[in-house]
Design a protein around this nucleic acid. Sequence first.
DNA 1: TATCATGGAAGTGGATCCAAAAATGTGTGG
DNA 2: CCACACATTTTTGGATCCACTTCCATGATA
Lengths: 234, 234
Amino acid sequence: MTPQTDDEPLVDDIAARIRARIMNGELAIGKPLRQAALATEFGVSRTPVREALRQLQNGGLIEMQPNRGAVVRVPAPWEVRQAYEVRAELEGMAARRAASRITERGLAALREHNAVLREAAARAAGEGRSAGSPTTTAANDCFHTVICEAADNPWLTRMIDRINESFPRNVSSLALAGDERHRQLNIREHDAVIEALAAHDADRADALMREHVISSGEHLTAWYERRSQTVFHG
Amino acid sequence: MTPQTDDEPLVDDIAARIRARIMNGELAIGKPLRQAALATEFGVSRTPVREALRQLQNGGLIEMQPNRGAVVRVPAPWEVRQAYEVRAELEGMAARRAASRITERGLAALREHNAVLREAAARAAGEGRSAGSPTTTAANDCFHTVICEAADNPWLTRMIDRINESFPRNVSSLALAGDERHRQLNIREHDAVIEALAAHDADRADALMREHVISSGEHLTAWYERRSQTVFHG
DNA sequence: TATCATGGAAGTGGATCCAAAAATGTGTGG
DNA sequence: CCACACATTTTTGGATCCACTTCCATGATA
């Protein structure tokens, strides 16, 4: 439970908690966020909640109209595509840099994470489940995180994180893990990237990673297009 | 003086004003920022000031230690290099996209802005002045802004802006405009980029823009290395 | 004289209070 | 029966207040 660490500002903690609730879908897309409700729920006053909401607005995860409150942002499909184009550029850069820096240890970690994904996919296919499990999401995140760290540029990592933090994660997971074909494609693309990294082929790693991210982006965009009429909750 | 526009939240206004003061050097690097002082200066209470400071911290322009106040951030030289590597990637992407989309109108605007730069450079060389004037800075900004807009991807623009907003602008201007040789180089690089854009040569525009940004980044990094010992005030 | 303790000053962070704006509900008139 | 005006309620945004932490100076003691 760890109510709070001593040296961490309370507002950051609150922001992280609200972000987490949005990310895992507990706070649905389009849902209005009442400061008072959040404050009582977290057992604090409205002041840190208000600051936290503003942080999230700055990050693009929610929208605030003056004097009208905040709602979980509903990204337009074309926005998703645009953001993923930028993400593809940045992740491509990360892969390119990682190709010449990654260690055997890092490659092993990548293979391990992809093995977890493969196993989860096989299991899901067997059980007929289609929802993205937390472990799947985590493994996917780890794959990209390892490459970012190998790229050894904190600013690059930060920029990629900012893009990811702008879209509810559970939606992405659902959209991407929802369809068996895409799940398999995803894993194969990961394999290809790992192979290029192992060969220290920067250009190929870059190109493959771009394709991979763009492919995911297109899938996610399509999901938002299908869903875009039905997201508003009352 | 427009005390405030009706629909803009006060905190954003305050954040913008503080940012402006940091950007133009009125608030020097390393200087501690007192909430009370800023509040009385802007004629508001401490609450919006505190929120504004947190926004700026989130943007990376200032640093806040819990219970110890905020200071204008002193970027480490290697951070500048890293950030500019990312910026080069993004601006390269912008140039690549702009190559196939830019209009004659946009090209004319680019040439115009570069003409302003050239004229300012000539005038500065004649007078022996070396400081970057506001018009120079503005023209430089416009050059990149026009290309970003031609690239037609708001997320891309936003990411580039975020990087730029993380470093005090006056420092960049001083560093880049301080040396005549680099000023000339800067203008020639702009010319080359414009030429590539006019030819709709995406690959060349990309490569030239990358070189241009990296070159600026190296210059700025060197400036920070020279300056890094002497910036602490107070 | 040097070092450490103690008390006050200054400053931040969170809670509470108040005014203004928007949404909602109600009653009246056409 | 519908529309418009007005009152009430809800919610936000800013100001003020209070507690706690940190910094600094002064003084006591070894």
